[in-house]
Amino acid sequence: MEVRTIKVFTTVDNINLHTQVVDMSMTYGQQFGPTYLDGADVTKIKPHNSHEGKTFYVLPNDDTLRVEAFEYYHTTDPSFLGRYMSALNHTKKWKYPQVNGLTSIKWADNNCYLATALLTLQQIELKFNPPALQDAYYRARAGEAANFCALILAYCNKTVGELGDVRETMSYLFQHANLDSCKRVLNVVCKTCGQQQTTLKGVEAVMYMGTLSYEQFKKGVQIPCTCGKQATKYLVQQESPFVMMSAPPAQYELKHGTFTCASEYTGNYQCGHYKHITSKETLYCIDGALLTKSSEYKGPITDVFYKENSYTTTIK
């Protein structure tokens, strides 16, 4: 009895394709271990004539594949690729409408935090270190965002349907971005203890939790000093293409032309909904596939993004 075979390709990165001759009487799992086709788990399936010449994702289970996976995804987590594939199996079914010149995501599976993050990423200057993220990001900007969303979920250790947080998501993504040249110098002034300067680099240099107003941050924000008295913390120097200011959701007025974009969060910790506000020729609110415009805006804002380049204080 002759062994019926077909020729397929296996890959971990969709760049390096490895030619395989597979036995049609055995499952993919018996031949390769966990195997995925377009995100779908085909591990328990036997090869079919229609699979001839198709590319299958496999887990990096030998040295060659491990090197290829690390170079593309910059992670050695053995569960990463499987999590990416199972997320992709959902995100490829989502709709990605162009809204006001940006790629958004039609609401499904509690994905409003991903839509808000995706919209924000198209408006701030950011370059990702893992080629996987950078490639998928370019495709997302062009309207094909399924891979990018699935990668975000995998890097953030999230599953489809789980509630997510924009600030946490951005923080994970910033860790995989090139923020080497970003720098922030802060000064804390206390009447009792004097003053202390701190220099922050990388992710810490672009994120701040405690106030939404970048102007206020430049002037000074009140913080408790270690001595128990009130101290003032203010920005001395900022070198970065953008800054992200966050605070627990509270009524906040966004003035046209003073910011790049913002995240609105309605609801409580267990259950809520994100919308995205962007400042173009007027203010726009993007909620999944829905767009509304207004000249002014007041609502429960939790993150505001500002364009920056270089700032030095005039406070002496």
Rank of each mutant, 00 (worst) to 15 (best):
K219R: 13
S240W: 00
K307V: 07
T282H: 12
D62I: 13
A205F: 01
K44L: 10
F56Q: 05
T260G: 01
N16K: 08
Y297K: 03
T19N: 14
T64A: 11
R167E: 03
S295C: 08
Q230E: 12
S263F: 02
V189Q: 09
Y137E: 05
L151F: 05
S240A: 06
V203R: 13
K7T: 10
L212S: 01
S171K: 09
K307P: 15
T211Y: 05
A231N: 00
Q31A: 10
V67D: 10
M209V: 13
V236M: 14
Y84L: 06
E239N: 14
I6N: 06
T120C: 11
K280W: 08
K95A: 11
N178K: 15
D13P: 05
L114K: 02
L163E: 07
S25Q: 12
Q134C: 15
F305K: 00
T226Y: 13
Y28S: 04
G299S: 03
G257M: 06
Y214W: 09
N110T: 00
W94H: 03
E2F: 10
L17K: 13
I315C: 15
Y172Q: 08
S86I: 12
M244Y: 01
N49V: 13
Q270D: 06
Y72W: 08
N129I: 09
I277P: 00
G29E: 08
E144V: 08
E281V: 03
T282A: 15
D63A: 09
F80E: 03
Y28V: 05
A87G: 07
Y28F: 08
R4A: 12
V21G: 10
L291V: 13
N110M: 03
R139P: 05
Y297Q: 01
E125Y: 06
A108W: 05
S104C: 09
V22D: 05
Y57M: 11
M244N: 01
Q195E: 14
K44S: 13
H48W: 13
L186M: 10
C261N: 00
V243S: 01
L290C: 15
V160L: 05
Y72T: 09
H256L: 13
T120N: 14
V42S: 10
M207W: 04
N268F: 08
V58N: 08
L212Y: 03
Q123C: 06
F128D: 03
T76H: 13
V206T: 05
E253S: 09
L291T: 13
I6Y: 09
P300R: 07
V42Y: 15
C225N: 02
H48K: 12
A145P: 13
K255V: 09
A142S: 13
Q122H: 02
V203A: 14
I45K: 15
I105P: 00
T55S: 13
L37Q: 13
Y36S: 06
L37V: 14
A177Y: 01
T314K: 11
F174I: 04
V21N: 14
S279G: 06
Q122V: 03
T19P: 12
T258Q: 12
L291E: 06
G101D: 08
L121N: 03
T91Y: 03
D109Q: 09
G228F: 04
T55E: 09
V3I: 15
T266M: 09
K54A: 15
V3S: 12
R66L: 13
A142I: 12
T258F: 07
N100L: 07
E215R: 06
L114Q: 03
P47K: 05
C112H: 04
M209W: 09
M244S: 01
P60V: 06
K191A: 12
D41C: 15
D23M: 13
L121W: 04
H90C: 14
A117E: 04
Q222N: 12
C156D: 01
N129M: 08
Y57P: 04
R83C: 08
G210L: 01
D165L: 01
K127Y: 08
S50F: 14
S171C: 12
G267M: 04
A108K: 08
P97A: 09
L151A: 03
L133V: 03
L200N: 08
L37G: 09
L212Q: 05
L235S: 01
N157Y: 10
G164D: 03
Y208M: 07
A154N: 02
P224S: 12
S263G: 01
A140I: 14
P130M: 04
T266A: 13
S294M: 13
F148D: 01
L200H: 14
S310N: 07
K233P: 01
Y208A: 09
Y311W: 12
S104H: 03
T199P: 04
N49H: 13
L173Y: 02
G228V: 01
G101T: 06
A108H: 06
E215V: 06
R141D: 05
Y269P: 15
K183N: 06
V166D: 02
F80K: 03
T35L: 09
Q238G: 00
V12N: 13
Q98L: 09
K95F: 09
A136S: 12
S171H: 09
S310V: 14
S279L: 00
G267C: 05
T91P: 03
F242K: 00
L133G: 02
D63F: 09
G257H: 06
A117S: 10
A250C: 10
D23L: 13
G53Q: 12
H176E: 06
V221W: 07
L200Y: 15
S240I: 00
G82C: 14
S79W: 12
A250R: 10
Y155P: 01
S171D: 06
L235R: 00
H48N: 13
T232W: 11
H90T: 13
D23G: 14
I286A: 01
T116S: 15
N16S: 08
A115W: 03
P249Q: 00
P241C: 06
D287Y: 00
C285W: 04
S279R: 01
E281A: 06
T192H: 13
C149P: 02
V304H: 00
H74T: 05
N89I: 06
L254Q: 03
H256R: 13
V206M: 02
C149Y: 03
V188D: 05
R66S: 11
A231W: 00
N157V: 05
S295L: 15
R4C: 13
N110G: 04
V166E: 01
W107P: 05
V22I: 09
H276T: 02
T292Y: 14
H273F: 01
I223K: 06
M245T: 01
L200G: 02
S25H: 10
M85R: 09
F9M: 11
E239Q: 12
E2T: 15
T313N: 12
L254Y: 00
K93A: 09
G39F: 12
L37Y: 13
S310D: 14
F70M: 15
P131N: 04
Y57Q: 08
V203F: 15
N61C: 13
K44G: 10
F148W: 03
C193E: 03
N89Q: 06
V221M: 12
E144R: 10
Y36W: 14
N110W: 01
Q195C: 12
D41K: 10
I315R: 14
I45L: 11
S213C: 08
R141S: 11
L153H: 03
A136Q: 13
F56P: 04
D109E: 11
F217G: 01
D303E: 00
F70R: 15
T302M: 00
Y36N: 06
G228R: 04
T282D: 10
W94Y: 04
R167S: 04
V185E: 05
H276C: 08
Y306A: 01
H51K: 05
E71P: 05
C285T: 09
F128G: 03
A108M: 08
C190P: 03
P78E: 15
V22N: 04
Y72H: 14
F259L: 00
V21T: 13
Y138E: 12
L283K: 00
A140K: 01
H176T: 05
L200F: 15
T43A: 13
I105M: 03
Y274E: 00
Q238Y: 01
T5S: 09
W107A: 06
T64E: 15
M207G: 05
L254P: 00
Y172M: 08
Q31L: 14
L291C: 08
I124T: 03
Y72R: 13
Y84R: 03
L59R: 10
K191Y: 10
K233H: 12
V22A: 15
T27P: 12
V67L: 14
M26R: 11
H273T: 00
E162Y: 02
H48V: 12
G53A: 13
R4K: 14
T314L: 13
T313Y: 13
T10F: 08
T232P: 01
T11F: 05
S246W: 00
T232G: 02
E239R: 12
I277N: 01
Q98D: 07
G29V: 06
C182F: 05
N100Y: 10
C261T: 01
T75E: 15
H176W: 14
Y274W: 00
C156K: 05
P241K: 10
L81I: 14
D135M: 12
F174G: 02
Q222H: 15
I15W: 08
Y72N: 14
A205Q: 00
A140Q: 02
I45D: 12
I277F: 03
A146M: 07
F56K: 04
V166C: 06
